[in-house]
Amino acid sequence: MIDPIPAIVMAGSRPGPDPLLTGSGASTKALLPIAGQPMLVHVVRALRASPGIGSIAVLAQNSAELAAEPGLAGLADLHFADSGAGISSSLAAALPPGDDPVLVTTADNVLLTPAMIAEFVAGAEGSDVAVAMVEKDVLLARYPESKRTWLKFRGGWWSGANMFRLRGRRVLPLLDFWGRIERDRKKGLKIIAAFGPWLLIGALLRLFTIEQGIARAGLRFGLKATVVPMSEGEACIDADKPVDIELIEKIMARRQAEASA
């Protein structure tokens, strides 16, 4: 059995106005209500219900505001800390000591479930860096209307599922690198190109699978990097746009109906 690992939830706001908040009454995206509860509450409750997760830290620019959310009251081993200006620098400051692993997710990953978490944690075991991904056919088979950012590799197109496993402070060089390119996080080819011309050429020509591509990218930093293919398409549907929220509301309503049936 895998020992529980701590989790970090990135719940900060990006610079500039967020169109999702217009007219909502919420001060930050993490507190935007979906299916009757703030996004952050859905994510933290899924983590807390997961046997594979230990302590949970929530990072945000104004963490005290999130800590006051009633939906989070009484949850065990839940902590809050103020984050810095960027995702990578904030995460680097929150990593556990030594080589202890940590799971990282985001407050807008509202469809997260304990089953998804268990699947990812098991698949990520033994890696320095693991990334949860969903293959395009897996998502579109059930949700053809969903629009995601796709990375094209041999054997399929892939989208990130907002879950990562990082093995402690040995990933600091990678986070420093990510801090310089995270502004392009939605531009697949720019991200690939940043890891070097051979990775870009290989991706353009589809010379290798995404597993091989991620492994090559990790080697640049002396890390064992792996992809964990998620079996549920819902794992990559996060709340980025109003159309995403509409779909998420429908999925959550269906889940509730199935649970009460």
Rank of each mutant, 00 (worst) to 15 (best):
M1E: 13
P19V: 06
S24Y: 05
G25H: 08
A30G: 04
A30Q: 02
P33F: 03
Q37H: 11
L40R: 05
L40K: 06
V41E: 00
L47T: 01
R48V: 00
Q61W: 06
S63Y: 07
A64N: 12
E65Q: 15
E65Y: 02
L66Y: 07
G71I: 06
G71R: 11
A73P: 00
G74Q: 11
G74F: 07
F80Y: 12
A85H: 10
P96R: 08
G98E: 12
D100Q: 13
D100P: 00
L103M: 11
V104N: 04
T105Q: 03
T106H: 14
V110D: 00
L111I: 02
I117Y: 04
A118K: 13
V121H: 11
G123C: 08
A124M: 07
E125D: 15
D128G: 06
V129N: 04
V129L: 15
V131R: 13
A132F: 02
L139T: 01
P144D: 10
R148E: 00
W150S: 05
F153Y: 14
F153D: 03
R154H: 09
G155K: 11
G156L: 09
R169L: 01
R169V: 00
R170Y: 00
G179D: 07
G179C: 06
I181D: 03
I181M: 10
R183V: 08
R183L: 06
I191Q: 10
I191H: 01
I192V: 15
W198N: 09
A203W: 02
R206M: 10
R206E: 15
T209G: 09
G218V: 03
G218S: 10
V227S: 10
E234N: 06
D240M: 11
D244S: 12
L247Q: 14
I248H: 10
Q256R: 13
A257I: 02
